[in-house]
Simulated assay, not measured.
Amino acid sequence: MMLPKAAKDPSCGAPKHTGLLREELLVFRHLLGLGENPSQIRLGPPLSNSSLKDILFVSIDVDGPRDFKCAENSPCLVGISILDTRRLQFYMTTISVAAKTRSALGNVENLIKSHQLQVGQSNHLSYRSSKFLFGETRQIKADKVKTYLQRLIKDRFFVLVTYGGGAADCIYLEGLRLGIRPLYHLDVLKVAQFPLQTYYRYSLAKILDALKLPWQDLHIAGNDARFTLHALLMTAVRDWNYRDDKPKSKPTPSTQVTLSSIKTIAKAWRIPDQDQPSLSFLFEDHIIKERVLLNPETRKNGKRLRPEKTPEEKAQRRERKKLAKEKRKLKEARRPQWLFNLGDLLDNE
């Protein structure tokens, strides 16, 4: 079994529970068709002609009062991100991994549907809701959140995804009384413990950095739910490199397509840049050069005109060049003589 260097080094003093292989990771492997079912729980039917399960990955994060039982109508933000394995299978089967078109790559980011709901009004929530990166925040009444979430799930089997246990998130969902229960609850912190060889609670930012995933404006409900799903997908790619039960030969074509597709989805989002589109990194031959606006008063032939130097500044520049030249000569005089004859000695040999 391959392990990271930190786990191999006995002098690092890592606890015995470093990198535990938890049931959550085994279940996640099975949902993606990368492993067997480790439990007796029925994890949904498989998709036709695919090893993927016919489910929804529903990532939820709630920002608000800690005790939702005592403050069900208190202002809060509810972030929801959903990845449908049917859409994932369609992307895997209809788009070639070797050569993806630009229009297809532009739609990769849209395979995950993200929503942010604002319940109630407060200045603090209004500011935080404006930081949502994946759409517009929707104002909604507390009694309408249940209907909104039910409409998103649409009587499908789903797996709940949270980060760090999501105690407050689960309390909020229990208060909604959806009438349906998830097939399984995946805590990304536990899923990533073996692939990242962790032994303490990483923050979401640290997990994303360890997986080399971009992120921005965390601690916003909608962004946390989305980036949690990104971390979950990228964990599967990282996990494949450290599995002890994978075949020694190259992975099968279907496994390669699965790993390549979820890696592309996890990395599709980039920090927005005003000067270039967020997906320009996907095209090596697509380089956007900064356009220089020509002003005839300040520029000539596309180059900025430097202000004319005064006689004093010109004299100072000549003096600096003279001192630098004398310094180089002094340095060469101190250099051993054999360095100058090294080329001749090599030629003679």
Rank of each mutant, 00 (worst) to 15 (best):
I41S: 09
I41R: 10
I41T: 14
R42V: 02
R42F: 12
R42Q: 05
R42E: 07
G44V: 06
G44P: 04
G44L: 07
P45A: 13
P45I: 03
P45E: 13
P46Y: 02
P46A: 10
P46H: 12
P46D: 07
P46M: 12
L47Y: 03
L47V: 06
L47G: 05
L47S: 06
L47C: 06
L47F: 06
S48Q: 11
S48L: 14
N49W: 00
S50M: 04
S50T: 05
S51P: 02
S51F: 07
S51Q: 11
L52R: 05
D54T: 04
D54F: 04
D54I: 09
I55Q: 05
I55A: 11
L56A: 11
F57E: 01
F57D: 01
V58S: 05
V58P: 02
S59E: 07
S59A: 15
I60N: 01
I60T: 07
I60V: 15
D61S: 12
V62I: 15
V62N: 01
D63A: 15
D63Y: 02
G64W: 03
G64E: 06
P65T: 04
R66S: 14
R66T: 13
D67P: 00
D67S: 10
D67V: 04
F68G: 01
F68P: 09
F68M: 14
K69E: 10
K69Y: 10
K69D: 10
C70R: 14
C70Y: 00
C70D: 09
C70T: 03
A71M: 08
A71P: 00
A71R: 12
A71Y: 11
E72M: 14
